[in-house]
Design a binder for these strands. Structure first.
Ligand SMILES: NC(=O)c1ccc[n+]([C@@H]2O[C@H](COP(=O)([O-])OP(=O)(O)OC[C@H]3O[C@@H](n4cnc5c(N)ncnc54)[C@H](O)[C@@H]3O)[C@@H](O)[C@H]2O)c1
Ligand SMILES: NC(=O)c1ccc[n+]([C@@H]2O[C@H](COP(=O)([O-])OP(=O)(O)OC[C@H]3O[C@@H](n4cnc5c(N)ncnc54)[C@H](O)[C@@H]3O)[C@@H](O)[C@H]2O)c1
Lengths: 206, 206
DNA sequence: TTAAAATTGTGAAAAGTTACACATACTCGA
DNA sequence: TCGAGTATGTGTAACTTTTCACAATTTTAA
């Protein structure tokens, strides 16, 4: 039980959490089962049970899982018992949508600072936040001990931005720029590229 | 060689293609090697060779891969020797950013129609496209034989929209709504949820 | 011409992941 | 209290994916 937990297991926990929250919002039922959860997510119940068993025994035979309790446990495991402050770099059309997005806060994240290099954007406000010059990035991250950043710059700037973020102390980056980023061990990077997702699907279309 | 190719292999091909295009744009070198490509992507060279070997022998011993030729082959495999017309559902802040995004076209996709249910949005233009009522969706998809759609509606509408898209003939959907969607076999669904990505990373942060 | 270097494609081994199936334990109603 | 039903947690088997390592081929340079 104390061995290294596979990344692939960690990756499913947020999905479970998301669906449990939906169950909480929909039903007034207090419990669910690995079978119900799996049914709703297209995942086998055995897999859900095995995944959760890496972290403890959260269920009860005959009954299933208490939804609220499991949500709490998953939040603890994923370190979501706090709101993570987030830095956004790139205040273009995507960055602006992200800055206005109200779906981060209730799930544990909040974009609090926005940076850009375009002098015509610096000083303008987006959703109550002032777009700041990149020159202020390092001190902001240090002062507020920020660990999480989102990159929404063009691909051409993304590696340079990444290097600077990491140098400044950022430990997790979600990048929307369509390229692989290099980072030292200990820094976590996720990607969101709609085109690779679409291309993956068109393989299967005649 | 003629057996079923694993999904996980298909999923890496767009990444290879993306990096090959970057190589094309950067260098004037005409060839690359599995080692160079792997180095740039953080993937082992053996994996790249094995992946490609599912589809044929594209390389040359001692030399590596001709970049242009490999790009062409990957485009053929992924059915990117055409531009796929795409329907966008949901003209909110994210949908608007997507509608303006100029990164789709050069990689094989083009958003051509935008649908929404909000009467105050219908009739307005985004990037030269008129926002249309959902009631026109079915006929548009049929008339233009559209196979690909992007969902950028709130989660609460997404399953209903999905059902309608599929009923109308859509075969591949990229959804930004933060929930699992049900679809019959033969319909492909991909997801983009920044929060699950961030949550996956915070697991590793103290 | 020859030897060293580079590089592929691939069979086989290793590692990782998922599915199976069942002992165990709780619930509910008679 | 009992028996039927439900559902967990898990050891093991089956399957999938990655890595290894090398024969074969081409390039390069002496
Ligand atoms: N627009 C979309 O819908 C969409 C969708 C998916 C992915 N993306 C990707 O997201 C990224 C942003 O897309 P966008 O459409 O918002 O682009 P955009 O051109 O509208 O905005 C990019 C912003 O980044 C800023 N920028 C450039 N260099 C910078 C630097 N070194 N430091 C800080 N800021 C810098 C620019 O000034 C600009 O404000 C791109 O990589 C794009 O490929 C966009
Ligand atoms: N804004 C972001 O940066 C962002 C980032 C990631 C994911 N998302 C997700 O993307 C989706 C859209 O986000 P948003 O911020 O653009 O929301 P939004 O509220 O700005 O826009 C949603 C749009 O969908 C339309 N809509 C509602 N029901 C519809 C229906 N049945 N058919 C067609 N259109 C319908 C609404 O009229 C509205 O125009 C949400 O699910 C959100 O969680 C948004």
């Amino acid at each position: 039980m104390a061995t290294e937990i596979p990344d692939i297991v960690i990756g499913r926990l947020p999905i479970y959490l998301r669906e449990l929250r939906r169950l909480q919002a929909e039903h007034d039922k207090l419990t669910t089962s690995s079978h119900e959860l799996g049914e709703r997510l297209g995942i086998s119940s055995a897999q859900i049970r095995k995944d959760l068993s890496h972290f403890g025994e959260f269920g009860k035979q005959g009954t299933g899982y208490h939804i609220g309790y499991l949500v709490d446990q998953l939040c603890q495991i994923l370190h979501l018992d706090q709101v993570w402050p987030v830095v956004l770099v790139g205040a273009g059309s995507l960055g602006t949508a992200l800055a206005y997005y109200d779906g981060f806060r209730p799930r544990g994240f909040e974009i609090r600072w926005i940076f850009d290099t375009d002098p015509s954007k610096i000083g303008h406000e987006i959703n109550g936040m002032c777009i700041q010059a990149i020159s202020e990035l390092e001190e902001t991250i240090a002062r507020h001990k920020i660990a999480v950043a989102i990159i929404a710059t063009p691909a051409s700037a993304a590696q340079e931005v990444t290097d600077f973020l990491i140098e400044s102390g950022i430990k997790a980056i979600l990048s929307y720029a369509p390229l692989h980023l290099s980072a030292p061990a200990g820094v976590h990077i996720s990607y969101s590229d709609p085109v690779t997702e679409l291309q993956r699907m068109t393989y299967y279309l005649g």
